[in-house]
Amino acid sequence: MMSAVVRAEGLTKRYNGRVHALAGVDLTVARGEWLGVMGPSGSGKTTLLNLIGCLDRPSAGRLLIAGDDVTTLSQAELVRFRRNHIGLIFQQFHLIPYLTALENVMLAQYFHSLADEAEARVALERVGLGERLHHLPAQLSGGEQQRVCIARALINQPSLILADEPTGNLDQANEERVMDLLRELHAAGHALIVVTHDPAIGDLADRLIYLDHGRVVREQGLRPLAGGALVR
């Protein structure tokens, strides 16, 4: 069995003490695995992603990421853990509008340690934006903005990349480009958790879980990982 990058046991999130956004989810994601998460709106997909992304804390349960129990970390430790281990890709891209593509990537480096322009440039070239380094987000197409977001997620070499509807705001052509990038990341050995409504994206995953009312109601898929090993 591959070593797990994420292990969730009885992961629960309640709002106002009563509303169960997540109700006892057990989950394991192996290193290099691509996990797809699908389900109807309000099923708890984004809540699960926020908990694994250390943006939120569970109400109950245990969550180990890269071997560390993040439920025991203080707020400051959680922030440090997030910037060292997790890369986030958002549906709305969330780029700083007054910073260029290059600066948006360097911002993640700055908060992590030190901004390194050469490294940020390579990351953008890797997502095909070598010619658009000094463009502001408003001067980029949706697909290009999402690629900046991916470059930013990768820049600090996270052990886990989380994507929330990464193609939700893109046209067909750009969706293809982003999907290619996700495939490349997977092939390079990154562990991915991708929340999506799009079955085409879901099909790219090694394994797919379906959430409903905060529970995993279905799980499918077992395919060889990039390294040849089988998931689970």
């Binding site: 992304g53 943006l55 707020q75 400051a76 922030v79 440090r80 997030r82 910037r83 986030l88 969330h94 700083i96 911002l107 993640a108 908060f111 992590h112 930013r152 600090n156």
Partner: peptide, 16 residues
């Protein structure tokens, strides 16, 4: 505030 939220999400701590 959205900018602050993003900075926090990509790793900015309280001091930063």
């Amino acid at each position: 505030r959205t900018e602050i939220g993003l900075m926090k999400a990509i790793g900015a701590d309280a001091g930063q």
